[in-house]
Amino acid sequence: MDIKEAVFWLLDFAGYKRTESYSTDLTLKHSVKKIAPEKNNIKFVLPQQSENNNFLYSYLQSKRKISKKCIDFFVDKNLIYESKGYHNIVFKGKDENGITRFASMRGVFDKNGYVFKCDVKGNDKNYGFNFVNDKSDELEVFEGAIDLLSYCDIYDDYKTNKLALGMIADAPLETFLKENQNIRIIRLCLDNDGPGRVASSVLKDKYESRGYKVIDLPPPKEYKDYNDWIKSLRSKKTITMEKYR
């Protein structure tokens, strides 16, 4: 992170509410240049895996309203797991050869607005949490991993390619498209807040100019993101719906 990102991350972690004005200038920090992997000779080592995924299932099902079927899918694909010790959820981003290049962690013990989130040291931010199906030419793009899971659950969609950027910058998207040249359709499933809407506009123009069919597909306007949407659907005890997309 640069200094500004680091300060904001620490403020968020400490539970402070912050306000930042977002310019309508359609630029993204990493929209062109690739992000250099973390330096200082930090070796990328995945956190040790817990003996089971009990805390992972409990958090995603009770707090995030993700179904066991959806969680099972990603656990079975070895894309998420629970770390030993702190019991964080680890989300893995693999390259075209199935080698994990990126990993982020998300705590399961949220309390009074305190949230633990961070990337594993030494990761390559040109990758993001992803699911690859080389038989599909469609790709859905999200800001966060839990929104990606929420989308899969809402639409019962475990066939199309999916990518969580972990930010509103497209270095991971550039890498994914380079490594998966079968992609023809991109759905931008970014948040309904200011940064998400600006990023969607920028990315839509950028990738349409490259010949992709790009669809802006945020959740319904009354929800900030896909996880907000699925929590609302589950509270109403209904998840069956026509394809919004």
Rank of each mutant, 00 (worst) to 15 (best):
M1E: 11
I3V: 03
K4W: 15
A6S: 14
V7A: 14
V7M: 15
F8V: 15
W9Q: 15
D12E: 14
F13Q: 13
A14Y: 10
Y16Q: 04
K17M: 13
R18G: 15
R18I: 15
R18C: 14
T19E: 13
T19N: 03
E20G: 07
S23C: 09
T24R: 13
D25E: 12
L28Q: 00
S31M: 13
V32D: 14
K34V: 14
E38H: 00
N40M: 02
I42T: 01
F44V: 08
V45G: 11
L46E: 11
P47H: 09
Q48T: 05
Q49S: 00
S50C: 08
N52I: 01
N53R: 05
Y59I: 05
Y59F: 08
L60Y: 00
Q61T: 06
K65R: 01
C70G: 01
I71K: 06
F74C: 07
V75C: 09
V75R: 00
K77R: 06
E82M: 09
S83W: 00
G85F: 11
G85I: 10
G85H: 07
Y86C: 11
K92N: 15
K92D: 13
K92H: 15
E96F: 05
N97Y: 09
N97K: 01
G98M: 03
T100R: 11
T100E: 11
A103S: 10
S104R: 10
R106D: 01
F109Y: 04
D110L: 08
K111D: 02
N112D: 06
G113V: 14
V115G: 09
V115N: 10
K117G: 07
K117C: 06
K117W: 03
K117H: 07
C118I: 14
K121E: 10
K121L: 06
G122F: 08
N123A: 12
D124L: 00
F131P: 09
F131V: 05
K135E: 02
E138D: 12
A145S: 15
S150F: 09
D153C: 06
D153T: 04
I154V: 09
I154D: 08
Y155P: 00
Y155S: 09
D156C: 00
Y158Q: 06
N161T: 01
N161M: 02
K162V: 04
I168H: 12
A169E: 09
A171T: 05
E174P: 08
F176I: 02
F176P: 05
L177D: 09
K178G: 03
E179V: 03
N180W: 03
Q181T: 13
N182T: 03
R184N: 13
I186Q: 08
L188G: 00
L190E: 03
D193L: 08
D193W: 07
G196W: 03
V198R: 05
A199C: 06
A199D: 06
S200N: 01
S200K: 06
S201I: 13
V202R: 02
L203G: 05
L203E: 10
Y207Q: 04
S209G: 08
R210Y: 13
R210G: 10
G211S: 11
V214H: 11
D216M: 10
D216R: 12
P218A: 02
K221W: 04
E222G: 12
Y223V: 01
Y223A: 05
Y226F: 13
Y226Q: 11
N227M: 07
I230R: 03
I230S: 00
K231I: 06
L233G: 01
R234T: 07
R234W: 00
S235P: 03
S235F: 01
T238L: 12
I239M: 09
I239C: 06
I239N: 07
T240A: 08
M241P: 15
Y244K: 07
